[in-house]
């Protein structure tokens, strides 16, 4: 049984290489016309490099994946707030991580306040934020 408490690091979630095709698929689903997600000429014109820019929401979704994998449920996330600090581009590696700051409640309502982040492969923290997560009942408090 896993002991959960302040300082506990959530198992990370890694995307080895962000795919330009996935970026395009998300742009379609979002109905997002922002050309920096699919038009390399527009990326260059904006002074943002030579590769497609991943949607901030997609990088945020990797953090959500981390939480879902840890808790085993998509209903465990209660709140997440993220600040977008830098860009992720096609080809980048992204690692989503988190650490518990505080545990409150008991039983089925036990929840953790977590610091969460997403780091690019070069070590740059592209997203930082917090999340409130219902703790799996298979774990015990520290």
């Amino acid at each position: 049984m896993t002991t959960i408490g302040p300082g506990y690091h959530l198992p990370t979630f890694v995307v080895d290489e962000v795919s330009g095709e996935h970026i395009r698929q998300v742009a379609l689903i979002l109905d997002d016309p922002n050309p920096i997600h699919f038009d390399l000429a527009a990326v260059a014109a904006a002074g943002m490099g030579t590769r497609e820019i991943n949607q901030g929401g997609s990088t945020m979704a990797y953090i959500v994946n981390m939480i879902t994998a840890w808790t085993g449920s998509r209903s465990a996330l209660k709140r997440i707030k993220c600040r977008f600090r830098d860009n992720v581009r096609a080809g980048d590696t992204v690692t989503a991580g988190g650490v518990i700051l505080e545990v409150t409640g008991r039983g089925a309502t036990r929840r953790a306040l977590c610091e969460v982040w997403a780091d690019r492969g070069d070590g740059c923290r592209v997203i930082d934020g917090t999340a409130i997560v219902l703790i799996p009942e298979t774990s015990q408090s520290a």
Binding site: V15, S19, H22, I23, Q25, V26, I29, L30, D31, D32, G57, S58, M60, A61, Y62, V64, N65, T68, A69, G72, S73, R74, S75, L77, I80
Partner: peptide, 29 residues
């Protein structure tokens, strides 16, 4: 398709819950 593009496993719990990022998708749309 969103699950695929976001490297997400299908809902491990009920199989019917959408990825939470759909809140953001629906907010934008």
């Amino acid at each position: 398709i969103a699950d695929h593009a976001l490297h997400a496993e299908t809902d491990p719990d009920t199989g019917e819950y959408a990825h939470s990022i759909w809140f953001l998708i629906i907010a934008l749309r």
